[in-house]
């Protein structure tokens, strides 16, 4: 009975979130298709539909040149759902497979950037909580904020310039046999700091921990001599981090577009840029949909973690 009491809200939350995810993915796919359908460049869509309908059992009567919106959308969505994203126009390889390869590289970049931000900002926020001086805190956060007000690519150039001048070293180039952590370092640092992630984690965590430690039940528990670390961790660190992650993950993907461009990182962001330039529609669409899917999965997971830690949240 006890287990049921926990499982029920969680499973309900999972179902709800899953439903929302499917709905959101559908809305996005739909709006993307609206854009596509009403684009001034009509042959682009026709060629694309022709390509994806090639290896599908299609109704012979379909006239792809003057297809109406509904049947075009149905054609497209069935192709997409059956995993058929067409072939890239520029190199003729299956679009989705390529996008996935690139996506894995981006995920590793983002993963390390998030890790690094945690490594930097958690001790930082501990420091802020500890000596509790509003002025230093303000100046510190303003300074960090200013860093994120510089355009990201300029910041990257500056860092490369400085690392060249000061350390006489340029640790950025990937060399397949020797590919090591150095290759990861600068892009990861820039992504963590330049996108403001470090700052936000610091601010949120220190604010939340302070707020929670002033709550009545914590004061009460501490007066009783009970350990409050678990509560503090849950409410002060885990929750804000999870919320932050699900709110900022899309923004991080946006920032990687710039970072990957500069550091020659073979990720989805660079792919998106290249395909936009060459109007490689099949590859662009599969990259966009994959990006949305990955972001949605991350948000879903963080929501699940939230519910697991705090089953009460499933009602919200």
């Amino acid at each position: 009975m006890v287990s049921w009491a926990i499982i029920k809200p969680i499973s309900r939350a999972i179902l709800k979130e899953l439903g929302a995810t499917v709905l959101i993915l559908f809305i996005i796919a739909f709006s993307v298709f609206i854009l596509l359908f009403y684009s001034p460049n009509e042959d682009m869509l026709t060629a694309y539909l022709l390509m994806i309908s090639e290896n599908m059992p299609v109704n012979e009567e379909l006239d792809l040149d003057n297809i109406d919106f509904t049947s075009a959308f149905i054609l497209w969505i069935t192709a997409v759902l059956s995993g058929n994203f067409g072939l890239s126009l520029s190199n003729g390889l299956p679009a989705m497979q390529q996008s996935i390869e690139f996506m894995l590289n981006t995920i590793s970049l983002i993963f390390f950037a998030v890790l690094l931000s945690l490594v930097i900002s958690l001790p930082f926020s501990a420091l802020i909580i500890k000596n509790n001086q509003p002025i230093t805190q303000k100046i510190l956060s303003f300074g960090l904020n200013c860093l994120s007000f510089f355009p990201l690519f300029w910041l990257a150039y500056l860092v490369i310039f400085l690392s060249g001048r000061l350390f006489d070293h340029f640790p950025l180039v990937q060399q397949s046999e020797t590919s090591g952590a150095i290759f990861y370092l600068l892009p990861v640092i820039l992504l963590a700091i330049g996108s403001g992630l470090v700052l936000e984690i610091t601010q949120q965590v220190s604010y939340e921990v302070k707020r929670v430690s002033k709550e009545d039940y914590i004061i009460c528990a501490r007066a009783k001599g009970a350990s409050v670390f678990r509560h503090l961790f849950k409410e002060g660190i885990a929750f804000p981090l999870l919320t932050l992650l699900s709110n900022r993950i899309a923004y991080l993907f946006g920032a990687t577009i710039i970072i990957e461009q500069i550091f020659n990182w073979p990720g989805i962001g660079r792919l998106l840029w290249q395909t936009t330039q060459s109007r490689d529609l099949p590859l662009l669409l599969s990259a966009v949909l994959l990006t949305v899917l990955v972001i949605r999965i991350v948000q879903f997971m963080s929501r699940m973690c939230y519910v697991l830690i705090n089953p009460r949240a499933s009602h919200e």
Binding site: I24, I28, V32, L35, L36, S39, N41, M44, A250, Y251, F253, G254, I257, L272, W273, T275, T276, R279, L281, L284, V288, T291, V292, I295, R296, Q299
Partner: peptide, 14 residues
């Protein structure tokens, strides 16, 4: 769940 730059890329491409 959609980076703004990605939306812009789509609009630019189309």
């Amino acid at each position: 769940s959609m980076p703004r730059l990605v939306i812009l890329f789509l609009v630019i491409a189309i």
